[in-house]
Simulated assay, not measured.
Amino acid sequence: MVGLTMAVGFLLLIVPGIIFALMFLFTTFIVIDRQLGPIEAMKESNRITRGHKWRLLGLLLLLTLINILGLMALSLGLLISIPVSSLAFTYAYRTLSGTPLARVAAMVAQAA
């Protein structure tokens, strides 16, 4: 549903597609983390990204640039840039959702 929403936004104009993409950026994380349904996860993603869209756009542009540089380094740089990008993206979700890193570390320790 998120992909369909973004596709409609991109068909209307590029700007609405970018806005929809930023609104629903963390939908997948929320479905996995909080075990919500798709509609509730989209609403929650919209709620936690409200007021942070410019910073998130900057983060996505920076991560895209880092991955392009990794690709230009004979594609071997992607072995570093993709995990770093994933961790930065996850950290942004955890920061905006209000989950402290100590709680995340405790959850990982319990799972191991």
Rank of each mutant, 00 (worst) to 15 (best):
V2Y: 07
G3P: 02
G3C: 06
G3L: 07
L4R: 15
L4I: 11
T5Y: 15
M6H: 13
M6D: 06
V8P: 03
V8A: 07
V8F: 07
V8Q: 13
G9T: 05
L11Y: 09
L13D: 11
I14T: 12
V15R: 13
V15E: 11
V15Y: 14
P16Q: 10
P16M: 06
P16D: 07
G17V: 01
G17C: 03
I18T: 02
A21G: 07
A21F: 04
M23E: 11
F26N: 04
F26A: 04
T27R: 02
F29W: 15
I30L: 00
V31L: 08
V31S: 07
I32N: 15
R34D: 14
Q35P: 15
Q35H: 15
Q35W: 13
L36T: 12
L36N: 12
G37T: 10
P38C: 06
E40Y: 08
E40L: 06
A41M: 00
K43A: 02
S45P: 06
S45A: 05
S45Y: 05
N46S: 14
N46C: 10
R47M: 13
R47F: 12
R47S: 10
I48Q: 00
K53L: 03
K53C: 00
W54F: 12
R55H: 10
L56N: 10
L56R: 04
L57G: 07
G58N: 06
L59H: 01
L59F: 01
L59I: 02
L59S: 01
L61G: 08
L62C: 04
L62I: 05
L63M: 09
T64P: 06
L65Y: 02
I66F: 05
N67R: 04
I68G: 04
L69K: 04
L71M: 14
M72D: 08
A73T: 12
A73Q: 10
L74F: 14
L74P: 05
S75R: 15
S75F: 14
G77R: 02
L79R: 00
I80K: 06
I80W: 10
I80S: 09
S81K: 04
I82A: 01
P83E: 09
S85E: 03
S86Y: 11
S86A: 11
A88N: 06
A88Y: 00
F89E: 09
F89G: 06
T90W: 01
T90C: 01
Y91K: 08
Y91E: 08
A92C: 02
A92H: 02
A92E: 07
Y93I: 00
R94P: 08
T95P: 03
T95W: 08
L96D: 01
G98E: 03
T99A: 11
T99S: 08
T99F: 12
T99Q: 14
P100K: 05
P100D: 13
L101W: 14
L101E: 11
L101S: 11
A102T: 14
A102S: 14
R103I: 13
R103F: 08
V104G: 03
V104C: 03
A105C: 09
A105Y: 06
A106M: 13
A106L: 12
A106E: 11
M107I: 13
M107V: 12
V108P: 05
A109F: 08
Q110L: 03
A111L: 15
A111I: 14
